[in-house]
Design a protein around this nucleic acid. Structure first.
Length: 119
DNA sequence: CATGTGACCGGTG
DNA sequence: ACACCGGCCACAT
């Protein structure tokens, strides 16, 4: 089992992802930035690896900065992730979300503080 | 303990 | 526009 601090990091990721409202999407970088680790977007994705089994965490609403469904391979089924997004009123073409920036949801705005110390 | 891998991001050429 | 590179943190072997 992971260390407590590690769980804390993961929990932070899950906590933010859980806040993603229906019909909205965000990126790994945005979440990472919100956690205070703007360069650790990879970890966010890694955390999402376990999140795919967590119904509390809508991992299908988390895409990369290009709006690509990079993590669809980790979802059960073939195009489940895409179908889920389309089901929420989005449009996905070739594993890419259309109007990504339009439906983009910034966690920082909800948290109300940018933990990014990257100056 | 060291090395490799990973659902990534941003900058530079 | 595309390709390459460095950085970041945690986990697996």
């Amino acid at each position: 089992m992971p260390k407590p601090e590690t769980l804390n990091f993961f929990q932070k990721v899950y906590a933010v992802a859980r806040q993603i409202p229906y019909g909205k999407v965000t990126s790994y970088g945005a979440i990472a930035k919100c956690l205070g680790a703007p360069r650790s977007a990879r970890m966010v994705g890694y955390a999402m690896n376990g999140a795919s089994e967590m119904e509390d965490v809508p991992a299908h609403r988390v895409l990369n900065r290009n709006g690509l469904l990079t993590g669809k391979h980790h979802f059960p089924g073939t195009h489940l992730m895409q179908q889920l997004l389309e089901s929420e009123g989005h449009t996905v073409v070739e594993d890419k979300l259309q109007d990504f920036d339009k439906h983009f949801w910034d966690p920082v705005e909800m948290i109300g503080f940018d933990a990014s110390t990257d100056q």
